[in-house]
Structures are given as C-alpha cells and as structure tokens.
Design a protein around this nucleic acid. Structure first.
Lengths: 138, 138
DNA sequence: TCATAATTGCAACATTGATGCATTAAATAT
DNA sequence: ATATTTAATGCATCAATGTTGCAATTATGA
C-alpha cells in the first residue's frame, strides 16, 4: 500500500498530514478486516499516540468523506475498512465477533438493476449474516 | 393477521397481554416496513397510549426474543419488522428514508453454503444498499 | 520565518438503549 | 369475587457511541 496516494488526495482537498492522521492511515492499511473507533483508539495508544475521542470521530468522518475509508454500521457500532477490501460479514450474536466472507458477484448485478428501478444512486452496500459462531453454539 | 396466534405464543412463555403490548402488536401488524422505537412511540401517543421509553425498549426486546418481531440495526438505529415481511432496504444517506426492495432468492442458497463453510448457525441476515434517493440527488 | 486556516483538546451535549427498584396490574388459584 | 403471584411498568440513573462550539495549537504555503 502506498500511503503517498492518500496523502496526495488529502492535500488536494486542503487537508493536512498530521501525526494522528498518518498513524490512522497506517493502521487502517494493515487492518485486514473492520475496525471500530475503540479498536483504533487502542491501537493508537499502543503506538503512544493518544488523541482525544472527538478527534478520532472527526478523523474517521474526514477519511470517509475523502474516500480513504468506508463506513459500515453493524449492530449499532460504526466500523471502517479500506475500500479495496470490501466484503461481507458473519456477525456472532453471542460474542460479537465478526468474520469476513466472500460472496459471488451476483449482488453487483442486482445492485445496478435495483438502482435503476428505484432511481437510487447507490454508493455502497452492506450484507451481514447474523447467527452464532462455532464456539458460541455450545 | 391473527393476533391470537401471537397472544397464545406469548402466554405460553409466561408473558401477559397488556394494553401496551397488544397495541404494539397491532401497530407492528399494520406496519408494512420497518419501525424504530421512536416511530413506535409516536404511533402509540396518537392512540393515547403513553408508555415510558424504557418500557418500549423492554417490549421490543421481549417481542424479539419471542420471535414476534425481528430486529435490524441500520445506521446505528434498531428497526423492527414482522418476520413474514422480511426484505432488504435502500437507505438514503441524504434524508435517511428507507425503501424496501425485493431481491432474488439467490442469497438464500449462498447463506446455507456460507453457514456450512464457517460452521456458523445463521439466524438472520440484513442487506442494505446505501446511496441517494431520487429527491436527494438534486 | 510568518500568516493562514486546518486540526486538536476540552467540555458539554445528544441519541439510543440498558438497568435497579418500588409500584401496579394481569392471570391464576381459591 | 377476592386473594395471590409475579410479570410489566414508571422513574431515575447510567452507559456507549457519537456530535458540536470554541479556544489553543500546528501543518503548510508564501
């Protein structure tokens, strides 16, 4: 992942590359699944970066608006991921763990059709399967 | 819709048929799409039923646990619907309106496959398309 | 280096929802 | 019809997540 692409994009929008922002981009790039504001805060703390809670929220808003990351609200909590890593999720109703799953591209076709039918400009979609993971079935 | 079926089910679980509970079931039965706790509270008020906020939450939990209704969290807010009325949604990022959409049953097949592969006991799924409705595209 | 305005921290607030406890009321038994 | 049992309710409080106004700080271009 080349951070410079993101940096360039951000600078073009009048944004600045701050310590916190660059650390967040670094973390998000390494993250293979979803990350919540709390997860992000924990990871930043481990790197001795201690931003205020509101800064985190504003930062996640900013990066979402600039298409660096994508927001996906699951069970009432906002999660974020890099756009290249789009996928769907298995959400455990027992332990709240989230597993990503691949799914055939059948959905993409239907999406276009639905958009047309409803005169909707679809930006994004989210598909979650809720149930109980192997451990929590016991 | 025959309310007696729900009433019987509830009584069998040791539940009681109270004024509030029966009004909620009546409202949910007429509701063709999703309803939030706030929507429900408004509708009850129009019927001169003014339950406490916590009662609404407890009631929605109760009915969900007893499979009278199904919960679906969209953009951080819990929505509820009757199980027979399961469908997917177009969520407008502009005005927050929600439109239901039908989708082919292709998803059901994949769901079974995914459950098997991941040893997950899938209870439910939710599929939302996010974007901008016709009005909000202007 | 300086000026500008983006970013940050802080405090306060908003929304949605959960919980402990005393009171009320639905359903059952008498 | 009345008493008993315990589910349901209201109230107050709390919790989690996220938002906002404002003053202080800092990244960036000139």
């Amino acid at each position: 992942m080349n951070k410079e692409i993101f940096y360039k994009n951000i600078r073009e929008q009048g944004g600045r590359i701050t310590k916190i922002r660059s650390e967040i981009i670094k973390i998000m790039s390494n993250e293979e699944c979803l990350i919540s504001s709390n997860d992000l805060l924990s990871q930043l703390k481990m790197l001795n970066v201690n931003p205020n809670r509101s800064t985190i929220y504003r930062e996640l808003q900013f990066l979402t608006k600039n298409n660096v990351i994508i927001k996906n609200t699951i069970s009432g909590v906002d999660y974020y991921e890099m756009p290249h890593d789009h996928h769907h999720h298995l959400v455990c109703m027992g332990c709240n763990s989230i597993i990503k799953v691949e799914i055939s591209n059948h959905l993409e076709k239907q999406e276009k059709q639905i958009a047309k039918q409803n005169k909707f400009n679809i930006i994004n979609h989210s598909l979650e399967f809720y149930g109980y993971c192997n451990k929590c079935q016991a």
